[in-house]
Amino acid sequence: MQLDISSASLPVYEALASDVRLRIIQLLSTNKMNIKELAASLGLSSAIVTKHVNKLEQAGIIKTERVPGKSGIQKISILKVDHIDVEFPQKIYHSFETHTASIPVGHYVDYHVAPTCGLATRESFIGEVDEPKFFMDSKRMDAGILWFTKGFVEYKTPNLLKTDERLEQIDISFEISSEFPFTNNEWPSDITFSLNGTELGTWTSPGDFGDARGKFTPDWWPSNINQYGLLKTLRLTKDNGTYIDGDALSDVSINDFDGKNDIWDFRIQVKDDAKHVGGVTLFGSGFGNHDQDIKFNVYYS
């Protein structure tokens, strides 16, 4: 589950702001339970536990299923979410000027991918899934999502800096997750990023998320496959190395990469020898939780 700092996420924050509800989540992380079983474990009445369960269910953290029991139909509570990511507003650096570019996820210029893999537009799949040859289909330019188990996709973006403009920082943001044949919230994948042939570092995606439908995912898209990713910002600084969402990724700085080229190459890759070969899913405009493509923000002075 991915949250942001807005009123739309308040039901989840409110649901978590209770010792009792946190204990219910802990209990459901080990087993499915009915109200009577939860009440006994918590030492509370069934009526009170029901109110707390309803709060968690409304927030989308747990779900309830009706199953036959000894005394008729009983309601079983099941933990629905095993990961919550909170996206804070991006900090803006007012002291720098900015060049901005956006690259649709289907506008890669080179690739080498292995199944499971595929692409889709907002209307339909592109060709057949798990057939790498369709990554060269002309319809790929309209793709809003792509996925592969190992290999890479590479994008190009123009260097918009003028000769008198000094590069200070590069931010690259994208919505990304691992790739599992259906979905698996706990499916780590080591994803490596490179710029102009310089390896910036490797980030481990925690999973391929399907516990809730993506906010922008089209209605035709099946509910049992990739629904959304995590919005990540890769930041290449002038003196302090490379970061991803504020966490240090490597010591590579702007001084280590050739930023004078007219064209910059950006590669997203899962290496054959990675510890976790868990694939990549890239969500672009019209898919996932963020209606955006791959964004480059280039800060200069």
Score class of each variant (00 low, 15 high):
4 D>I: 08
8 A>R: 14
9 S>F: 10
10 L>D: 10
11 P>C: 11
12 V>T: 13
12 V>D: 01
15 A>G: 08
21 R>Y: 03
35 I>Q: 13
39 A>E: 07
44 L>S: 09
44 L>A: 11
44 L>I: 03
45 S>Y: 02
45 S>E: 09
46 S>M: 09
47 A>E: 13
51 K>S: 10
52 H>K: 04
54 N>G: 02
56 L>D: 04
59 A>C: 11
67 V>K: 14
68 P>A: 14
72 G>A: 06
78 I>Q: 09
83 H>W: 05
84 I>C: 04
87 E>I: 13
111 Y>M: 11
112 H>Q: 13
112 H>Y: 13
114 A>M: 05
116 T>G: 02
117 C>V: 02
118 G>S: 09
122 R>E: 14
124 S>I: 00
125 F>M: 11
130 D>G: 11
131 E>F: 09
133 K>P: 00
134 F>I: 07
134 F>A: 04
135 F>L: 03
143 A>K: 04
154 E>I: 04
161 L>R: 06
173 S>A: 10
175 E>M: 00
179 E>T: 03
182 F>P: 00
187 W>S: 07
197 G>K: 10
202 T>W: 03
205 S>I: 01
206 P>D: 02
208 D>N: 11
210 G>K: 02
212 A>T: 12
213 R>T: 07
214 G>K: 00
215 K>T: 12
216 F>Y: 15
221 W>A: 05
225 I>D: 00
225 I>Q: 03
229 G>N: 04
232 K>L: 15
240 N>M: 10
241 G>A: 11
242 T>E: 05
248 A>D: 01
249 L>A: 09
250 S>R: 01
252 V>G: 02
257 F>H: 08
263 I>D: 12
264 W>Q: 08
266 F>P: 06
267 R>G: 06
267 R>Q: 15
272 D>A: 14
273 D>G: 03
273 D>N: 15
282 L>F: 09
292 Q>N: 13
298 V>L: 09
